[in-house]
């Protein structure tokens, strides 16, 4: 059962209010005769006592999802589409309603599971974010950003500079090779197979490693 735009906005407002001052009931005010209020009441998303509104547990969950969509949309617009900051909020407000459930997780993955919106407010984490926390050890990292003693397998070499590529290949660093970072400063020292190499940052930043440990 899909809520209409107006109803979603009400849930959103209530959720944000609850985020600011938890437990507070909101004055019903002008929304009194709004048909969406009745609808939301009927569906059990909100509670109404003495002209004051509050989210039910079910409403909490739904509101959280809407906010997540909204703030992810904001991120998407600023980070990827580069829309001016001032316009971000109104545009996302329209957009969040268009985002279907499930798609927001794809966008979240795409954006690298952002923790906050462009205004600094936190984005409620979704299922995808929790999964990525567990998988964080498995992700790919560039050699120059690995921790000392981290191990992995070379995932790929990425560079536009041919001489650099030649040097990396000369060292026998190719996809699939076991690699382990021994030291980061003053030079990067890593081990491939049974041999160690020292390289500078420039070369260390073209080797991408799938971390295993």
């Amino acid at each position: 059962m899909k809520l209409n735009e107006r109803a979603e906005e009400i849930l959103e407002t209530l959720w944000v209010n609850n985020e600011k001052s938890p437990g507070e009931w909101m004055d019903l005010g002008l929304a009194k005769d709004n048909p969406e209020i009745d609808e939301l009441l009927k569906l059990g998303y909100i509670k109404l006592i003495n002209n004051r509104l509050s989210l039910s547990d079910k409403g909490m969950i739904e509101g959280r999802k809407i906010i997540r969509r909204h703030r992810l949309a904001e991120r998407l617009f600023t980070d990827v589409l580069d829309i001016k900051e001032k316009l971000v909020h109104p545009v996302s407000c329209q957009f969040e309603h268009l985002l279907q459930e499930g798609i927001e997780d794809d966008i979240c993955v795409l954006l690298g599971h952002p923790k906050t919106c462009p205004h600094g407010k936190s984005i409620p984490p979704g299922e995808c974010c929790r999964k990525s926390q567990k998988d964080i050890k498995k992700i790919i990292s560039v050699l120059s950003e690995m921790d000392v003693n981290q191990k992995g397998k070379v995932a790929y070499i990425y560079t536009k500079d041919n001489p650099t590529l030649q040097k990396v290949m000369a060292m026998g660093v190719l996809p699939g090779m076991a690699i382990n970072l021994v030291q980061k400063y003053p030079s990067y020292v890593f081990q491939v197979g049974q041999s160690q190499f020292a390289v500078d940052k420039e070369i260390a930043s073209v080797i991408y490693v799938r971390i295993t440990k």
Partner: peptide
């Protein structure tokens, strides 16, 4: 210059 060297 760029630096790479095997460390025996």
């Amino acid at each position: 210059p760029s630096f790479y060297m095997e460390v025996p």
